[in-house]
Design a protein around this nucleic acid. Structure first.
Lengths: 253, 253
DNA sequence: GACAAGATGTGCGATTATCGCACAATATCC
DNA sequence: GGATATTGTGCGATAATCGCACATCTTGTC
């Protein structure tokens, strides 16, 4: 990398840091060298820097993230008033749904959760938090984000054949997915049942923008809770009200 | 920095990234050069790298974090099963408290929120999220974290005279704070009223460890809600039950 | 306990990345 | 429109970083 374009050592370091984003409990320096393809000595120096700066801690030969990284992402959340404005609204509507609600944006090929709230009675999934990434094609929130994306983004995603199948009923045919995304665009909401997690259904609506990215609001519940048309319509109505409430806030204009 | 010790360019880059942790909506390259003390050209190159790697976006001359940073911190949350295990427990006990509950660890001179939950009726503060930093001396959760810290850490903090006063009643006398921390250690809980946010009171108990750091569990409510002894005892009982529930989980053993 | 495999630590010469500065261009503010 | 602030760029010098090889330590298997 020519110096005018940036700092290649920093870019390498960011790749090392990103290795920890996958959520494994800990990685060795050897793991990191393998995952990044960097020379062992380079990987080691970059890890030592992360330790020195407080982002990693060393437990024997295993390195793990410290909570310091949460501080940086809190900067993002604070900049967009997620804690002060968005979260209370999500808490309110999670109660009205008596379940779970999440706000996400599209980031690369994922739906990236920015905030979420759930009541105690909400169905426990594999544990999504702010920062969790969900695939776009088998989830309601993902399809709504695709519905709000330019056509070339959708086309590019659907070209990656074959798309991964998460359950026996995951739709992966490009034509069918294009149709589903178009339907979400037209109807102003997306509904998916059992295509990402068996037994789970999702519903999503569009809502404003965060930074430069369009956002979607979604809820996930057991199939039984969202399958009945009346229950689904009620949930959709609550989601729309939540979207309106969020839409009134300057940060999500 | 000798190469054997790490990568100084990466360290500088991490300092640039950390500038965004303060939560301002956006920073210019000039802002970053000022805050870090780096030469303008260095700051620019490091910012370009963050843009190239997808962590920042440029809006005119203002740079702002993208949600990609949330992904890295989600790695920390996933590694410690915050979403799958901790969050549902916090959601349950937030409802029992009919308010707010948060889990924090000590990081440098702050209480760093790792997870939190609130009901719709919870008092809205300045908007704390995972990653938010609170000062240690004027908050219940902070005092409990100090109560769980080695004596030298406490001494070092109290030596930084004068400690900041957040309200008219913020205690800053080292002797009195040492006493309060000792009381929290002995009683197994900390209670603070109106010392951090006017009109807000906090209650905290110790709970296990996350990674290598000891943790505390706290709740915050209006002074009126926690001032009556009976209400406070009830809240304390619920917090202790939450701590027990969390303590049963391997990740917080 | 021995051996093999895997991981980490270290030194070092070569090379490249990065540095900081100066100058130019652009944008914003009054 | 002028002043101020910010950004963009080129470039020679310097220091950081590179990757490799060798050594040491730790872990796993028999």
């Amino acid at each position: 990398m020519a110096s005018a374009d940036g700092a290649s050592t920093f870019a390498k370091g960011l790749r090392v840091l990103a290795c920890f984003g996958a959520g494994s409990r800990g990685l060795t320096m050897a793991d990191i060298a393998r995952q990044t393809g960097f020379d062992r000595a380079s990987a080691r120096r970059l890890c030592l820097t992360l330790i020195e700066e407080g982002y990693l801690r060393k437990d024997g030969r295993v390195l793990e993230l410290t909570p310091k990284i949460l501080s940086v992402s809190a900067g993002y959340l604070m900049a967009h008033e997620i804690g002060r404005v968005v979260q209370p609204i999500l808490n309110l509507f999670a109660e009205r749904l008596d379940g779970e609600i999440a706000l996400a944006v599209r980031d690369d090929d994922s739906a990236l959760y920015v905030a979420q709230s759930a009541t105690a009675s909400a169905r426990v999934s594999i544990g999504f938090t702010a920062g969790s990434r969900l695939p776009l094609w088998p989830t309601a929130i993902g399809r709504m984000l695709l519905a709000r994306s330019p056509d070339d983004i959708v086309a590019k995603l659907l070209e990656q054949a074959p798309l991964r199948r998460f359950t026996e009923t995951t739709e992966t045919a490009p034509g069918a997915l294009r149709q589903a995304i178009e339907t979400a665009r037209r109807d102003g909401h997306a509904f998916v049942s059992g295509e990402f997690e068996r037994g789970a259904a999702g519903l999503a609506v569009p809502v404003g923008r965060i930074g430069g990215a369009s956002a979607a609001l979604g809820t996930t519940a057991s199939v039984n809770r969202l399958a009945p048309r009346e229950a689904r319509d009620r949930a959709l109505d609550i989601l729309r009200q939540a979207a309106i409430a969020l839409g009134r806030e300057p940060g999500l204009g």
